[in-house]
Write a protein that binds this DNA or RNA. Structure first.
Length: 152
DNA sequence: GCCAACGTTGGC
DNA sequence: GCCAACGTTGGC
């Protein structure tokens, strides 16, 4: 069991969109970064915890929880020539990009803002701070527990 | 395999 | 909308 942080732009897909779907799952489509892809492909397992992060918005921060709801499988959008996520160099036989389904768990009572996280020295090693552009990040169980306590 | 050019992310 | 950081591409 591992923990992750996934970023989403709320204008595109927010925690409320995920909540509305529940108990249906959302295929986490569109990851086009190798480091992020490798985490999904090599390490994600059903039941893993996910911190849901809102980026590129008024109040960037962690807004709730989800969980990994499938094993990794090829992202269909890479084969769709009209999709913005189309990848001509990928093929059905040798797909380049994978995704997992994610399932809503809860919305935090309060948003854990990026400002707040940055102000707390215990989070200086969090990938969100150290690798701010990575859209799929591992989170240690210690950080996970601390962040849960802050959000609930 | 280096590295310049280019594209993208995302906070501010 | 700006721009810093950084990932990717492609020529050599």
């Amino acid at each position: 069991m591992q923990y992750w942080l996934l970023k989403s732009e709320p204008d595109e897909f927010s925690i409320n969109d995920l909540a509305k779907l529940a108990p249906k799952v959302e295929p986490w489509s569109g990851i086009r970064n190798y480091q992020a892809r490798n985490f999904i492909r090599d390490q994600m397992q059903i039941g893993d915890g996910i911190l849901f992060y809102h980026s590129s918005c008024k109040q960037p921060g962690i807004v709730g929880l989800a969980k990994v709801a499938s094993t990794p499988y090829p992202d269909p959008s890479q084969f769709d020539s009209v999709s913005p996520y189309f990848d001509a160099k990928s093929s059905i036989d040798n797909p380049r990009w994978v995704l997992v389904d994610i399932e809503f768990l809860e919305k935090f009572k309060r948003v854990i803002s990026l400002t707040q996280i940055k102000a707390m020295p215990q989070f200086s090693e969090l990938a969100l701070i150290k690798s701010p552009r990575l859209s799929v990040q591992p989170v240690s169980s210690s950080h996970w527990q601390q962040l849960l306590a802050l959000g609930r």
